Computed example of a mutant assay.
Amino acid sequence: MADVDVTNNTERHRFEVNLEGHTAFAEYRLKPGQIVLPHTVVPPEFEGKGVASALARFAFGYARDNGLKVIPTCPFMAGWVKKHPAQHDIVDESCREPLGLP
């Protein structure tokens, strides 16, 4: 899939991609100095097309831009960050060992 436009729906506390009448999203919860990423949903029509990865890039970019440490409790987000060492520095200390990060 080409460029995916991700938006921050602050009212619903989630990052969203709207395509062809479907919405993929990554929920988030803000805590002081932290962002928790508990759940990601991608409609079957967009699975395997990079939409979830676009959501992850946006979420981690948002965290970095806002000086937040990430707590990726969503299995997809946890798996994604393991594959992206450039993002390891913003993973919250409480999650580093369970995720096997240095």
Rank of each mutant, 00 (worst) to 15 (best):
L30M: 04
C95E: 06
E27R: 09
G50D: 02
N18I: 11
V51P: 00
V17Q: 00
L99S: 03
P75R: 13
L68M: 10
L19R: 00
G50I: 02
A59R: 05
K69F: 15
F46Y: 05
T10L: 12
P85L: 02
M1P: 11
G48Y: 04
V51G: 00
V41N: 02
I71C: 07
G21Q: 07
N66M: 09
L55W: 00
P98Q: 08
Y28K: 04
C95Y: 10
Y28E: 05
R14Q: 06
W80P: 03
R29L: 14
A54W: 03
V70T: 08
G48K: 07
M77P: 01
K31I: 12
F46K: 02
P32C: 03
G33F: 14
A54G: 03
I71L: 12
I90A: 00
H84I: 11
G48H: 06
P44F: 11
D92Y: 08
H84M: 11
Q87E: 13
G50K: 04
A59F: 08
K31N: 11
E47W: 10
V70H: 04
N8A: 15
E93F: 15
A2T: 13
V51I: 14
L30P: 01
K69W: 11
R14V: 05
V4L: 14
P102Y: 11
V4K: 08
G61E: 11
G33H: 14
R29P: 09
K49L: 12
S53D: 09
N18T: 13
R12W: 10
K69P: 04
D65R: 15
A26K: 04
H84C: 09
G100V: 04
Q87G: 06
G48A: 07
K82L: 06
L19T: 04
I71G: 00
I71N: 01
E47K: 10
P75T: 15
K31Q: 15
L37N: 02
V51T: 02
F58S: 07
S94W: 09
V42D: 02
R96V: 01
R14C: 01
C74K: 02
E16F: 08
K49G: 08
